[in-house]
Design a protein around this nucleic acid. Structure first.
Lengths: 236, 236
DNA sequence: TCGGTCAAACCTGTATGATAGGTTTCGTCA
DNA sequence: TGACGAAACCTATCATACAGGTTTGACCGA
């Protein structure tokens, strides 16, 4: 692994970003490990503190380091915040459509749910069943229903034991949250809404039973329905 | 769409990031549209130019705006650079494993190749066939072979007509590039290496023939092989 | 009228110095 | 050994300055 980070090499700030990134890699730093102070980095890299700050701020934006008042920058845990912003940006600037996002979600979440069925712990299975039950209990309260729906998908992503999938599910959460009310409203009948809840229950059941095929089928049905609902609401 | 960006609301810089993001959204700005100057934003947001610069630098890192000397910030096209850095960071800090990335790649790229078979233009089909032919022609020159291999995957992602998938393929490119030589070397025989090239040719053929099933099958085979090769090289 | 040129105004990237407030380290004492 | 407090360290923000890049508009010639 001897590659330079994928950056335009055109400014002192981008140079500092590269140098800090390389330092993290070369010294095998782990999340929580401390970096040198801004003053020290400024001296080592032979740039002003302004440049170091802007570089660190960029790395913070990408969740590569954590910044805090009075403390030195530390190496960050991966996190979906930046990806979420980027996806939302794509949607708001008409570069990405909702249907495109749902195609990707369907693709990854049908795989995730199969892995979750195979890899979940008993605790996770119980939590997933609980989230589905809470959806059932909030059927007439859409705001709460949405929160449990989102929580269920998050739990499933956690149970799949692949942090990249988890990151991606998190990255789509902002847009999911924004489109959920539209989808719910556009389900035409109480029966259609009932199917949505029952499908989530089926997903949970399949995961708890460790049945990846049933889980995949149920998740596929869920997404096909959701796409239909959003389409009928004019979200293309 | 009335949601706040997903940010900790704990500093002037994060506040400025939110304000600028909101402005892009509320004014329906598109890629290439100009934002106010740093001085103007400083005045409007009632913060120092430092805060504005750090906010813009953060947004630049996430490829939400573009910065350039002498020019005002503009709204950016989506781009995989930041995601690529984030994925690499996850790998280097032992938060993500290579096998996890390949699981995600297999999941998305088998979907992408099916879409590409359905949606490619004749020009794209020709380019894809050409890239596969160039792989064949460079079979004894691994560096060039890798470049054509990477280019082929990129072309396929482009042909699928889903910019989110394209973003994700780009996001994994850094790690793919870093692991490719390992996988190549760990294919034990000339026969095994031949299979890799032939599989890419089969992928290209299936796309050109508009056959999503054949494309999906070939891509699955390709990933199963690649995962095996990387595993046998100790990359888990 | 249109296109080219040029200068002024605008604009950013970087540096430097300063201050307020948060965090860490280390010496002291019970 | 653990608690406390002070000094040193550290960051977030502000202000000012300068070098160099970009944009705009006036002017002039064809």
């Amino acid at each position: 692994m001897q590659n330079e980070p994928n950056l335009p090499a055109s400014s002192l700030v981008s140079g500092a970003i590269g140098a800090i990134t390389r330092r993290i890699r070369d010294e095998d730093l782990m999340p929580g490990d401390r970096l040198p102070s801004e003053a020290q980095l400024s001296k080592e890299l032979n740039v002003s503190r302004t440049v170091v700050r802007e570089a660190l701020r960029s790395l913070d934006a990408m969740r590569i380091v954590d910044l805090a008042t009075g403390k030195r920058a530390t190496v960050a845990h991966i996190d979906h915040d930046a990806m979420s912003l980027m996806i939302e940006h794509g949607v708001h600037t008409d570069q990405i459509s909702i249907q495109q996002i749902y195609d990707v979600r369907r693709t990854i979440e049908t795989r995730i749910v199969a892995l979750a069925a195979l890899r979940r712990t008993d605790t996770e299975a119980a939590q997933i069943l609980d989230a589905a039950a809470r959806m059932r209990a909030c059927a007439d309260r859409p705001d709460e229903l949405m929160e449990h729906d989102l929580a269920l998908h998050k739990l499933i992503a956690g149970a799949c034991r692949n942090p990249v999938f988890e990151l991606l599910v998190g990255a789509f959460q902002g847009i999911t949250r924004q489109t959920w009310p539209v989808g719910w409203k556009s389900r035409p009948t109480p029966q259609a809404r009932e199917v949505m809840i029952a499908t989530h229950e089926e997903i949970a059941r399949a995961i708890a039973q460790g049945d990846p095929q049933a889980a995949t089928t149920a998740m596929s049905i869920h997404f096909d329905e959701s796409v239909r609902a959003l389409l009928s609401a004019g979200l293309s």
